[in-house]
Design a protein around this nucleic acid. Structure first.
Lengths: 233, 233
DNA sequence: CCCCTTAGCAAGATGATCGCATCTATTTCA
DNA sequence: TGAAATAGATGCGATCATCTTGCTAAGGGG
């Protein structure tokens, strides 16, 4: 009666806690992606003990945020232009698949409604010249599309990859042109989804992501030429 | 043949060893996907100790093969028809993206050559009526496509998901019709890729995967109706 | 009087800590 | 320059404390 399935809310384990702490520290760039860190340094800095930290690092490695060098230490992987391009390509493919699924679904009223609202929010934010609001609406657009595709694997993979590039998106936001073009594209994507124009939807999606990707990747390339390449795993 | 970047081959840590052992045991169905296992049982059965087993289980959980119930044990997740559909949808999207990338690449001679050879191998195997050989060639077709897309994230995500459904594919292989249709489709996909007919390629890919997915999913549904649904994470 | 519900206890298992042997990298000496 | 020793850190295992769960018994209701 009392017990439902959410048992992780009751008491976050230290491993979970370590994972969240380290992940946030990396994504917010509090941990510089340079040099090799030892377990001890993580422990001392965040007041955690070794086992939870080790298990958290293993998870972060599987997500591609860090690289564990056996018997040597842990390296925070920097995000270079090539990484952004690779990750965005996967995101593009997954999100397009989700959008196509929604467009072809018979029962997509909820999804379309949710997506529609985010488009309106983007247009409002643009009018008010509120970039933070726009970013939030933009993120929500993509999240709503993915969330409504009824495929937990797509959602999970998408979320984990998306987190990686939020760093990049955040830092390059104010360096990019005002997102008028982007806002228009989002409306077009929504309408193509609504009207079940599948090939239009696909072309729009690919175009949108390819353009966004190039904008961000170029900015990263210009602003951090000194950073080393990061091997995967 | 020649190992290039694989530095884990030099000396497999016990964690790596545990991971491989457990993963193989699950994928080959030596560990029944029923009931909850304790750490000790894994340790005794495979003669490993707890720390490596725990770390391996964490990795397997992040791949969706097992579910760790806090303070209760570890459950091997069964593969039901719905899972197969979800995973195949992701695979379809990723592999299509890879195929499109190859088709649009200027320097795709190597890739096309490798893929072409696997198609020939499939046709040979079919003629000899050698199912095992056919399966191997089939797997190699998809692997070559993904491997040549120059995107490590796609490769990595693909491999991890593909492993999950190999179980299903293996078990349903001999229950499915002879793969004549499938072989023909692979040749068509290859030719579309070679001739840069992108929309054909896309349609062929979607059609191929959707058909394969339904074949396998239906067989699973019929053969294992008694199995419980498996929640993700 | 019997059965069902609930509280309490015990046993077993897990999350986390700590220590040891081993391996890597660096430094020093020949 | 090269080899060996030393210092430091990691991988792994042993151990402790806490939590879950199943069993038992007591109490209340039919």
């Amino acid at each position: 009666m009392v017990s439902n399935e959410r048992n992780e809310a009751s008491k976050p384990s230290l491993t979970e806690q370590s994972y969240e702490t380290l992940r946030n520290a990396i994504l917010s760039n509090q941990l510089a992606p340079e040099g090799v860190w030892s377990d001890r340094e993580f422990c001392e800095r965040f007041e955690l003990s070794r086992t939870p930290v080790r298990e958290a690092l293993l998870r972060l490695q599987s997500e591609g945020l860090v690289e564990i060098l056996p018997r040597r230490g842990t390296r925070i992987l920097p995000l270079n232009a090539s990484d952004v391009r690779e990750i965005h390509q996967v995101i593009k493919a997954l999100e397009l698949e989700a959008a196509l699924t929604i467009a072809q679904s018979a029962d997509n009223a909820d999804a379309l409604n949710a997506v529609s609202q985010t488009v309106v929010a983007m247009e409002d934010a643009l009018e008010k010249n509120d970039l933070d609001l726009w970013v939030s609406a933009d993120a929500q657009f993509h999240d709503e599309v993915v969330s409504h595709c009824e495929n937990r694997r797509i959602v999970k993979t998408y979320r984990s990859l998306r987190g990686l590039t939020d760093r990049a998106r955040y830092f390059t936001l104010r360096l990019r042109p005002l997102p008028m073009q982007s806002t228009k594209e989002h409306r077009q994507m929504y309408e193509a989804m609504r009207d079940k124009r599948l090939s239009d939807l696909e072309a729009l999606y690919r175009c949108h992501w390819d353009r966004t990707t190039e904008e961000i990747a170029r900015l990263i390339q210009e602003h951090s030429q000194s950073r080393p390449l990061s091997p995967l795993r």
